[in-house]
Structure formats: C-alpha cells, structure tokens
C-alpha cells in the first residue's frame, strides 16, 4: 500500500468490471499451483541423498539408455542415471538461485535505501552507476563477469547477483523516495526520531512488499541465468549435476538421444515457471496497483 496514495493520474489502473471474485480465485489457484510445483521439486531435491545413489556413478555398460523401469529418465553418455542427476541438480540450482538473490539483496537494499534517503549528489552518482550497469544486458553482464572471474559455483553466484543488483537498487530507492515524503515519516522526525530509526522502523518495512515480489521473480531469473552459463560451459563445472551444465556436457548427444536434453531442461522450465506463478500471484495479492500490467 505504500505507494497506493501516489496515484499516476491516469485513472483507475484496472477496469473494475473485469475483476470478479472468480478471477481472484483463479489467480490464487495458479499461484498455488506454482507453490505445489516448487514444493515437490524442492522436496525431491532435498531428499535425493536419502532416496538415490551417487549422481556421478558411471556405468559404461549402460550408456545412453532410454527411459525404462530401471532408469526412469534414462542414462547419459557416461551411463549416469538421469533421474538422480536431475534431482541432485535441483540442489545446486536452488542453492545458486537463493544465494544469488540473497547477495543481490544484501548489496542492493542498503545502497538503494541510502541513495533514496540521502538524495542529492550521492543519489545522482549511485543512479548513474545503476544506469551504467543497466546498459549491459543482464545475461551479458553475468557472462562478462564470468569471463573475468572464471567459472565455478561461487563466481556464478557473484555474477548472477551482480546482474540482479541494479534492479534492487532502483526498486528500493523508488520505494524509499516515496516513503520519505509520507506524513507519518515527517511526524516521526518531528518527534525526534533519528535517520537510522526512521530507516529501520518505517522505510525498510515499507520496501518489503516490492522486494518480496521482485525476489520471487528473480529467483527464477537467477536459476535461468545460471543454467544458461552452465549450458555454455561457463557455469558450474562438470561433473557437478547442474541442469544447464548437464545440457552443455551432453551437447554432442542432444539430437540423437532426446532424453538427455529433455529432462534437465524440463526441470529448469518447471522451476522458473513456478517461481513466476508465485511471484505474479504475490504481486496480485500484495500490490493491487500492479495487477493488470504484469499479468
């Protein structure tokens, strides 16, 4: 609601006619579907060590086996069980997504809040810096950083986080700017509250809504970027079963053995779609102003 009072002067953002209770329910349903998909995939990934064997166990007698009862998703070019690898891959992908978003937030929130709260020259400098980062298309920025830092899990996390950070800075700065001018913040200041207290008690909690929505969507985007890097052979190193890396590693076999590419890619697709469903649902629920535009 933090920005609700600041109308855009272009009339109601949604045609109120079309917003029936039925549609809200449908939206909640799609968000629920997203949560269920995420829950299943996350549970499967977490339980992988309990249920399955070693994802790197090679079996040269059984390479490139199509799906069967023994290997539900088939085996890859080294005879490794694809189901096991896809399940273990979820651990890597979820971890990279979570760490990258956490790192992006850890860097983006303070910079955004300070830039918006302090204003003036500092704000101008920070915003020019953000402009500069946004001049690099996101995936390209991550790719460039990988070129400099080298491959590996840590560098993938850092690169993906750096690509997401400018979005957070801009988002949090915008929220901070609008909150700073609110009457209750002025009242708090008049009562003698210091800047730190105002930031912690008023500004940060009010930034939370857009940040939560954005982070959910960013989790999917981060996993997608990391998988793209992996596919190019510039992400997580083989034999670690990251989904994109699995596709890149099996590149020569992708067109001859359909199951090599299909299942790891399907996993990425499902996870990203689920995060998008939940993110869109959260936005609808938390920020009515954004309802039509994003969906």
């Amino acid at each position: 609601m933090s920005e609700g009072a600041r109308g855009r002067g272009s009339g109601p953002p949604t045609p109120s006619v079309g917003r029936s209770a039925w549609e809200r329910l449908r939206r909640r349903k799609t968000a629920t579907a997203g949560l269920v998909i995420l829950g299943l995939l996350l549970a499967g990934s977490l339980a992988a060590p309990l249920l399955m064997g070693d994802p790197n166990e090679v079996d040269f007698a059984g390479v490139l086996q199509p799906p069967s009862l023994e290997h539900l998703l088939g085996t890859d070019q080294l005879g490794r069980d694809l189901l096991t690898r896809v399940a273990y891959g979820g651990r890597i992908s979820f971890l990279i997504g979570a760490l990258a978003v956490a790192l992006g937030l850890a860097a983006g929130i303070p910079v955004g809040v300070i830039s918006g709260y302090v204003g003036g020259t500092l704000d101008l400098l920070v915003q020019r810096g953000v402009d500069l980062l946004l001049a690099f298309p996101g995936f390209l920025l991550a790719l460039t950083l990988i070129a400099v830092l080298g491959v590996g899990v840590t560098n993938v996390v850092v690169s993906v986080a750096a690509a997401a950070m400018p979005v957070y800075i801009r988002l949090v700065r915008g929220a901070t700017l609008s909150i700073r001018e609110q009457a209750y913040v002025e009242a708090a200041r008049a009562l003698g509250a210091g800047d730190a207290a105002i930031i912690v008690r008023h500004v940060l909690p009010n930034c939370l809504t857009p940040v939560i929505v954005q982070s959910t969507l960013q989790l999917g985007a981060a996993i997608l970027t990391a998988a793209g890097l992996g596919f190019l052979g510039l992400g997580v190193k083989p034999p670690t079963p990251e989904w994109g890396t699995m596709l890149g590693e099996g590149q020569t076999y992708l067109l001859s053995y359909w199951f090599i590419a299909t299942f790891p890619g399907l996993a990425i697709f499902l996870v990203v779609m689920a995060f998008n469903l939940v993110g869109d649902g959260l936005r609808d629920a938390l920020d009515p102003r954004m309802r039509v535009l994003g969906s």
Partner: peptide, 18 residues
Amino acid sequence: ALGGVSVPVFWLGIMLML
C-alpha cells in the same frame, strides 16, 4: 506467455530442433 517467459532459450531451441 507464461511459458515464454519461463522457458530456457537454449532448451527451447533444442526441443524445436528435435
């Protein structure tokens, strides 16, 4: 459209090729 924003571009390419 939801599929379009969620699908990994390289995977979509491979699936179309297949």
